[in-house]
């Protein structure tokens, strides 16, 4: 990788201030996307600001009806929170492998906005709110496009607020090598209605209104049987064609509904 200057920030304020004072900086969270990217010389930041020592990013809190998870909380830590939102814990436990989950963080994942990442599906599927050092952003507005979010230059994700669903589940068809989602679908019956969020299929996570309307009438897998999303604009790579991905969206959504109905996700916070 190209050379850079390294800083270890002790607080959110210090991290943001450092970011503003460097020429072309980047935040370093778990580093499990950033460091491989640097190793391939696909990026050349002048400075890396390590967030690993900022305790304020590692808190979790359960309030009435919602789970707030700090941006610096690792995937394995979320995977162990199965008592709160099991669908979210299950999703976190399926990211990468055990060692990746010991380093990768919630904030790092969503700030990167990989089109095949799992967390964006949970954020949009649960109607989460992304909290930054300066504002709150609805997850529906946070993920903009391929590797593009609503974050401004230097803006730092500090936590995510996940409302507890009545029922929810995530199912993904993983790439057998990377475990990234070829297609992943998060289905949730929330206090504000049905939400179906799809990752892996398009440039960015997206909702499927037809499926949400069908589930509002009948929360069963059969309600989705005849709904097929258009393949226009879906990802096309060596792993799967747009046609195949469109097919998988319906299959994964149906499986998610089956799992949501079978799970104990009705537990209220």
């Amino acid at each position: 990788m190209y050379a850079f200057r390294y800083h270890r920030a002790g607080s959110i304020d210090e991290a943001v201030r450092l970011h503003g004072s460097c020429e072309d900086p980047g935040y370093l969270a778990g580093g499990h996307t950033l460091l491989p990217t640097l190793k391939m010389r696909l990026a050349q930041p002048s400075d890396l600001i390590d967030l690993g020592d900022i305790d304020a990013l590692k808190h979790t809190a359960t309030t009435s009806g919602a789970l707030t998870i700090g941006a610096g909380v690792r995937h394995n830590d979320v995977a162990r929170m199965s008592h709160s939102i099991p669908a979210l814990a299950g999703l976190a436990g399926g990211i990468g492998d055990f060692q990746v989950r010991n380093r990768g963080t919630l904030g790092g994942s969503i700030a990167n906005a990989d089109p095949a990442a799992d967390y964006p599906a949970a954020c949009v599927g649960l109607g989460a709110t992304v909290v930054t050092d300066r504002r709150q952003i609805a997850a529906d507005d946070f993920f903009v496009d391929l590797f593009e979010t609503a974050l401004e230059e230097g803006e730092l994700v500090t936590s995510v607020i996940f409302p507890a669903p009545r029922r929810a589940a995530y199912m993904k068809f993983p790439n057998p090598a990377s475990r990234y989602a070829i297609v992943g679908v998060f289905v949730a019956w929330t206090d504000s209605g049905m939400r179906v969020a799809v990752t892996g299929a398009g440039a960015s996570v997206f909702r499927v209104a037809d499926m949400e309307a069908a589930l509002a009438r009948d929360f069963s897998p059969d309600a989705l049987a005849d709904i097929r999303i258009p393949e226009d604009g879906l990802n096309n790579d060596i792993h799967a064609t747009p046609d195949y991905r469109a097919h998988l969206v319906t299959v994964m959504a149906r499986r998610a509904v089956v799992r949501a109905n079978a799970s104990s996700d009705g537990v209220r916070l």
Binding site: Y6, G31, H32, L35, P36, F98, Q99, V100, N102, R103
Partner: peptide, 8 residues
């Protein structure tokens, strides 16, 4: 346990 090739 962590992968030492992906940590500085």
């Amino acid at each position: 346990s962590v992968k030492a090739c992906t940590i500085l």
